[in-house]
Design a protein around this nucleic acid. Sequence first.
DNA 1: TGAAATGTTGGGGCG
DNA 2: ACGCCCCAACATTTC
Length: 432
Amino acid sequence: MSEFSVFWFRRDLRLDDNAGLFHALTSGRPVIPVFIFDTEILDELPPKDARVDFIHRTLEELQEKLREFGSSLLVKYGEPLQVWEEILSEYEGIKAVFTNHDYEPYALQRDREVGEILAQKGISFHTFKDQVIFEKKEILSGKGTPYTVFTPYSKNWKATLSPAHLTDYGTEAHFSHFFSSEKKELPSLESMGFERTNTLFPNRIPDKEIIRVYEQKRDFPAQKGVTHVGMHLRFGTMSIRKLVRVALALNETYLNELIWREFYMQILANFPHVVNGPFKPAYAAISWRNDEGDFEKWKAGKTGFPLVDAGMREIAATGYMHNRVRMLVSSFLVKHLLINWQWGEAYFAEKLLDFELASNNGGWQWAAGCGTDAAPYFRIFNPETQLKKFDSQAEYVRKWVPEYGTPTYPRPMVDHKMARERCLKAFKDALT
DNA sequence: TGAAATGTTGGGGCG
DNA sequence: ACGCCCCAACATTTC
């Protein structure tokens, strides 16, 4: 009977520089590449979800590459534990399963359960670090505790970094170790209850010129100043190690943004309660207004504050929003409208192509002032000032709010000065 | 990775 | 030449 290894793709949808895949291909057995469309996740999504579309397209590309050397991706649809039972009965010779670490609470639970099934059958389960440079216990303060402030974390991160952390797990030399098989078809999007979208997905190769002058342009949403790599890091269509190598060579500010990503990932992993509420418990006492009508205006981009509205229309139309504008719209929702930041967090989770639980949660907690290393609550963005500073010619605004400046554009839904004072009072009441 | 309020300074107009 | 006032520009404090 022939023996196999399996490589289970999840958030690492690439063949190049993939740690777990490298180890699978060098394990001495032919490797069956597997992907599971997880119904536990998909059942929560609307039929037109660009991220599902993106995954499907990416799997088709992977499939084409695997065909070049006579292999085929095995793509399943279902509940992971059941799917694993199915795979193990279809391929009796499976001796080992390889995969890369996934750190979100749901994924940790899933992997524990899959690990148990495999262990019962005497199949070894090998998991690897691939998604980050440093995991949650690899960068700790002198006391051995996790950092909760970015700057010291980033200093230690940089000091700890060595070339070994940036190893290129190239797999090309080992492609012949993929299991040779007839072409297997992917389940169609339609068969899983989804539709194609006409989303324009970001380029997989980051623009080096943008990285080189990052700090000069990154704050101006009308300029080509950011690289849109979030989605590729989310789904692993880009290697973080490769990107860090580029950042090290080109731009410190850009590198810091990659470190922010890992900072929030280790916050989520070390303090999982942030998923369900504020990092700082005192902030649970805020009396939010939580006005549904206000929330609808915010989502629709009809607040009457042009830069806020531009951002909200951009995210609705494209699944993306410039980061400077993300900070403003979050501040506006939480501070001006006094709506629980978790409402905004959930809306972003639904819309953003580059949605990442850790970063999204960290960003919202930062904006609300209740997180680690948060902006103090009395930091309230002035939407007009932000417009003057970062989109003074209203280029970005006019792109998304064509009626800006005409009589049909709504009046500001709140008076800035009143809202600011109302917010300061609400936070002060809760916190003192 | 704020903004507003308050305080300080110094140049220029003017009696 | 001097003192006084105004106010922009900048600095510091406060929310």
